[in-house]
Amino acid sequence: MTTTDGRRPTAEEIRRAPKVLLHDHLDGGPRPATVIELADAYGYTGLPSTDVDKLGGWFRGPSRASSHSGSLERYLETFRHTVAVMQTADALSRVARECAEDLAADGVVYAEIRFAPELHIERGLSLDEIVEAVVDGLRVGAGGTGLHARVLLTAMRHQARSLEIAELAIRWRDRGVVGFDIAGAEAGNPPTRHLDAFQYIQRANGHYTIHAGEAFGLPSIWEAVQWCNADRLGHGVRIVDDIAVDPDGKATLGPLANYVRDTRVPLEMCPSSNVHTGAAASIATHPIGLLRDLSFRVTVNTDNRLMSDVSLTSEFATLVETFGYGWADIRWFTINAMKSAFLPFDQRLDLINKVIKPGFDALAANSTPRT
């Protein structure tokens, strides 16, 4: 079941829609040409190719080392190249600026861009210098475009710097940073290892999201929600393991799924990426369809625009094609995302009432009729 309104949005119409992006990794979205130019400028010789098309194809293609391997671990291996060329303030600022430009061109009006400062210290930058470079780059790239770009600071879950990064996030609050995150391979690295960081953020009245339920199952989600009190769940795909669907299509929710839905915990879903990492077998079988029908607080995101060869427009267009969604569905996902953003309430409300709802109303009134 979907909530369509009799019109099928085209990709170009979706591009013009005022969209909201909550889960996008800075080091997962550089332009291939930029990666090559930065590698040349800073003497990095490890790229698989210095041809723009070939390098882009390597990141996006089904080769052994590429991102589309069906394995989260292999997917993450590709980041060694993008991170390697993002080790100076100029490089970080450039990638952030181009990120904002690309999102604005894709019709995104609000975005939370996440990255792990601890991965960018190889050339001697301090953590504060790293954050400053990214915040400045996003500000310049978003200037005059209508995009409101903010930053989430990520700690790597297999390392021991999460409290330090949490303190960094609070230090930069109100200067472009709106929250905290942990990321990396889930198996063997439960979120409870970083409980002190989450408690620090809570005591400082901050916000945080946790990568959980992507490559690991319900225990990861349960810990993130019940032990760590996550404001949002990064991916959360495996919540479907707590939902039973009978042959007649009736869904019965288990206690954790009920809790997540009842308390409106936002799910930052990234359909294409989830297929590429093996979290879902295909878009058609992705849990987003069921979770949308069951009215979970689902949002649609890109995760890594380079590695998964996506934009927010293409993600929505894929969902339209796969599930038959119309403007009502895309608007629902978008308002879910804006409600779940880490902006102050009045700013969220302004964007919903003054930008998102009027933008969707205008597009729905003039879109191509469904055939």
Rank of each mutant, 00 (worst) to 15 (best):
L253Q: 01
L253M: 06
L253C: 04
G254Q: 02
P255W: 07
L256E: 02
L256K: 10
L256F: 06
L256Q: 07
L256N: 04
L256R: 03
A257H: 04
A257E: 10
N258K: 04
N258F: 04
Y259V: 04
Y259Q: 02
Y259T: 01
V260P: 00
V260C: 00
V260G: 00
V260Q: 00
V260Y: 01
R261D: 02
R261E: 01
R261T: 00
D262K: 14
D262L: 07
T263R: 09
T263C: 00
T263N: 08
T263Y: 09
T263A: 06
T263E: 09
R264Y: 06
R264F: 04
R264A: 11
V265S: 00
V265P: 03
P266D: 10
P266C: 13
P266K: 08
P266I: 06
L267V: 08
L267E: 06
L267F: 02
L267T: 09
E268F: 10
E268H: 07
E268D: 15
E268M: 10
M269K: 08
M269E: 01
M269D: 00
C270W: 11
C270I: 15
C270N: 12
P271A: 15
P271D: 10
P271S: 13
S272P: 03
S273E: 12
S273M: 11
S273C: 15
S273N: 14
N274W: 03
N274Y: 05
N274I: 10
N274S: 13
V275Y: 09
V275C: 15
H276F: 14
H276N: 15
H276C: 12
H276R: 15
T277L: 07
T277V: 15
G278H: 13
G278F: 08
G278D: 07
G278T: 06
G278W: 11
A279S: 15
A279D: 08
A279W: 06
A279V: 11
A279T: 09
A280Q: 07
A280T: 13
A281S: 13
A281V: 08
A281W: 05
A281Q: 04
A281N: 07
A281I: 05
S282D: 04
S282Q: 10
S282W: 13
I283L: 11
I283N: 02
I283H: 12
A284D: 14
A284S: 15
A284C: 14
T285W: 12
T285Q: 15
T285E: 15
T285M: 05
T285D: 14
T285P: 06
T285V: 12
H286M: 08
H286S: 06
P287N: 10
